[in-house]
Design a protein around this nucleic acid. Structure first.
Length: 272
DNA sequence: CCGAACCTGTGT
DNA sequence: ACACAGGTTCGG
């Protein structure tokens, strides 16, 4: 579910409640969503620590504990992390992590489909992701040339390149489709043929992401921010989820196809 | 590179 | 019963 704008919204909405809090008690109820170093115990690793910062890289929420340790949290398709001012909050069979904060309520992580992951970082939460997450799409150091150099070295469809988190991170199915629409680029166009259009595509990527953050993310069904509130960006989407509706630019009908196994939404007339 | 796999839930 | 869903990884 959450792509970059949703995780960014989550981070911002959780920060005032979590920053500086001490984790009094923790319950990790499913081993299979944890990536932990052998011999480490998630509870012992966590309990008694102070939350010293919240960050984000791509679609990962970085929870920094004291002594440079922490957790890198991924939400898969259906994950949520909600802060409740007091217990119990929503705890059911899909709630896999619960943290009780001293005097500051409780955080519950739910992931009904269990595609999410908690990656333990015993030394450096931003480094633990290694090369599985490339430069963040909103990183100011990313420019058109670098963007093109990263994505353009392949004959794969440009949309598949945008979805590859090892190259540039943060885009998922919604915002890849939206960015390609704004840039006027056909999703199946081969990446190696985008010569001269990288600057424009990167501008479109940044545009759709920052607008979505401004609207606090897109909620189709399960996305919620740190207080359990829905995002308001859905009504601002141009093509995603709008099959059969008029293109906002040329009034042709938005189409849907399947690319790399993902539903792909585009205007057949504006995008080439 | 595509499809399948990993999961549960929802809508037709 | 079947298709589909905001993601990632693996095998062929």
């Amino acid at each position: 579910m959450p792509e970059l704008p949703e995780v960014e919204t989550l981070k911002r909405s959780l920060t005032p409640h979590l920053l500086g809090a001490v984790i009094m008690e923790a319950r990790f109820s499913r081993r299979d969503i944890l990536e932990i170093s052998p011999g480490e115990d998630p509870n012992r690793f966590t309990v008694g620590s102070q939350i010293t910062g919240l960050g984000r890289k791509g679609k990962y929420l970085l929870v920094e504990l004291d002594h440079r340790r922490g957790w890198a949290v991924h939400f898969g398709m259906s994950g949520t992390m909600i802060h409740y001012p007091e217990a119990p909050g929503l705890v059911d069979q899909h709630t896999h992590v619960v943290w009780d904060l001293r005097g500051r309520g409780r955080v519950c992580y739910r992931a009904p489909r269990r595609f999410g992951r908690w990656i333990m970082a015993p030394s450096g939460v931003s480094e633990v992701l290694g090369d599985r997450v490339g430069v963040d799409a909103l990183d100011p150091n990313l420019d058109g040339d670098r963007f093109g150099a990263l994505l353009g070295q392949s004959r794969s469809p440009i949309k598949s390149r945008l979805l590859n988190q090892r190259l540039v991170s943060g885009l998922g199915n919604i915002y890849a489709d939206e960015a390609l629409f704004y840039a006027g680029v056909d999703p199946i166009r081969r990446a190696s043929t985008l010569e001269g259009r990288w600057e424009g595509l990167l501008e479109s990527v940044r545009g759709v992401l920052t607008e979505a953050i401004r609207h606090r993310g897109t909620t189709f069904s399960t996305y919620r921010d740190g207080q359990g509130c829905e995002g308001g960006n859905r009504q601002h989407l141009s093509v995603y989820g709008r099959v059969g509706q008029a293109c906002p630019r040329c009034a042709a009908l938005i189409q849907r196809s399947v690319l790399g196994g993902r539903g792909t939404h585009y205007c057949p007339s504006c995008q080439n």
